[in-house]
Amino acid sequence: MESFSNKRKVLEAKPLSFGERIYLPAILKGLSITLKHFFRKSVTVRYPEQKREFSENFRGMHSLKRDEEGRERCTACGLCALSCPAEAITMISAERKPGEEKLYREEKYAAVYEINMLRCIFCGLCEEACPKEAIYLDGDIVPADYLRKDFIYGKDKLVEAPLNQ
């Protein structure tokens, strides 16, 4: 039967020649190939010491942004948590007290903001949902750790460093 593509490979089952049957030439050929690879440069990127360049739209660890005056942008509206398909985000909101205007941009802010990095699938939907441009996945790869509880990142790890530093 002719196939649609008209591509066909005819397989011939020729009896093996003597050289093929004693198998040694083939072994020598194989050995020379592996020896060639032995001296080839390895393709490994030695990860923690060396890093591959990230692509432009790489999504890594989240960071909670600050505005031009160094105030936290997040207003704890919860849209990111709502949009998160992995339900990785939880937060507790609080009201800004007088005198804290330097710290928080809006009247309501996130007193606690936690992302469970084991649940997060780095889809970036939180980033898209945020009306305040407060969260971006512009960080590094989330590092490995030993305990599950250490993968719940709080504000101490997520919020950007203050401007004056």
Partner: peptide, 13 residues
Amino acid sequence: KIAAFMQDRVGPN
């Protein structure tokens, strides 16, 4: 190490 080199890897380091 030899396995790694032959497979273009680094091996235990």
